[in-house]
């Protein structure tokens, strides 16, 4: 198709997200702040603490069943110490993206929350040192969809309708309309916000986990989490079908039937209660 949206134009539009009048103000503010290379944990903590609404949202999220962070965290300074810079940055984007997702694609937030829970559980089962880091990757993996929907609502709606009609995935449908998919779009964004490599890679390669060089384990986890959440039919990620799992990623994680049953039960509980918490 020759009228696909050009990749350079797409990238420049995505990267100038702050200039969009339709971007929720919290996201704009956080985005501008994160573009600064040097933002530190202390500055970030102060910024959150000075904003009561943001503080409440972050604490509610950390303490909700979906995240399962250790113990009860009651202050931003405690949270920043316990979870570290990249998790806090991810959660900040997460709470502000919530508003955006709710506005653009009903059900995308629930899908993302589902992936957050499942990614954390797989990370724990595989003994990863920082399961919270992986759960944030699950939370943000589809951020590109929300941004594409915000900027190209008409075209994206067409892609979703096509996916629904023909039974292909939204990822496949996107390729007919854009020269890049939501995975690249998300990757541009988190790169612009100076997120750590594992987050950049999981977002970029969550549909092609075999391409991840730096974080193959984390990327495999988010890929499999996405498949399992769709298999259970939690939320709406833009289509109604389950994509096939990448065999190498599946084998790398080597989950038993018991593991998966356990994950599905937790997914059930966390997503039903998470609707309440945000």
């Amino acid at each position: 198709m020759s009228d696909k949206i050009d990749i350079r134009m797409l990238r420049s539009n995505v990267e100038s997200i702050n200039a969009l009048p339709t971007v929720p103000s919290t996201l704009r503010r956080i985005s501008i702040m994160m573009e600064k290379q040097s933002i530190g944990l202390e500055e970030l903590g102060r910024l959150i603490s000075n904003d009561p609404a943001l503080t409440a949202k972050i604490l509610r999220m950390i303490n909700s069943a979906a995240y399962g962070f250790p113990g009860r965290i009651s202050s931003v300074s405690h949270a920043t110490m316990l979870l570290g810079l990249s998790v806090i940055k991810g959660l900040l984007i997460g709470v502000s993206v919530f508003e955006l997702m709710e506005k653009t694609m009903i059900g995308l937030w629930e899908h993302s929350l589902g992936c957050t829970v499942v990614a954390r559980m797989i990370a724990q089962k595989k003994g990863l040192k920082e399961p919270e880091e992986v759960s944030v990757c699950g939370l943000l993996h589809d951020i590109g969809k929300a941004v594409l929907m915000l900027q190209y609502a008409d075209v994206y709606n067409k892609a979703m309708q096509e996916a629904e009609k023909t039974g292909i995935t939204i990822h496949e449908a996107e390729a007919g309309y854009f020269m890049a998919t939501h995975a690249e779009v998300g990757h541009w964004l988190v790169q612009k916000w100076h997120f750590p490599m594992h987050l950049v890679e999981t977002i970029r390669y969550h549909h092609r986990p075999n391409l991840s060089k730096q974080s193959p384990m984390e990327t495999a986890i988010v890929h499999v989490a996405d498949v399992l959440v769709r298999a259970k039919g939690v939320g709406y990620p833009g289509d109604l079908v389950v994509p096939s799992v990448h065999p190498a990623a599946w084998e790398m994680l080597d989950l038993s039937e018991n593991d998966i049953g356990d994950i599905l039960r937790n997914l059930e509980d966390a997503t039903s209660s998470a609707r309440e918490t945000i």
């Binding site: 298999a231 039919g233 389950v242």
Partner: peptide, 11 residues
């Protein structure tokens, strides 16, 4: 949901 992928590995 699974109608297109059942023949794929592990699905």
């Amino acid at each position: 949901r699974f109608r297109n992928v059942l023949s794929e590995p592990y699905m």
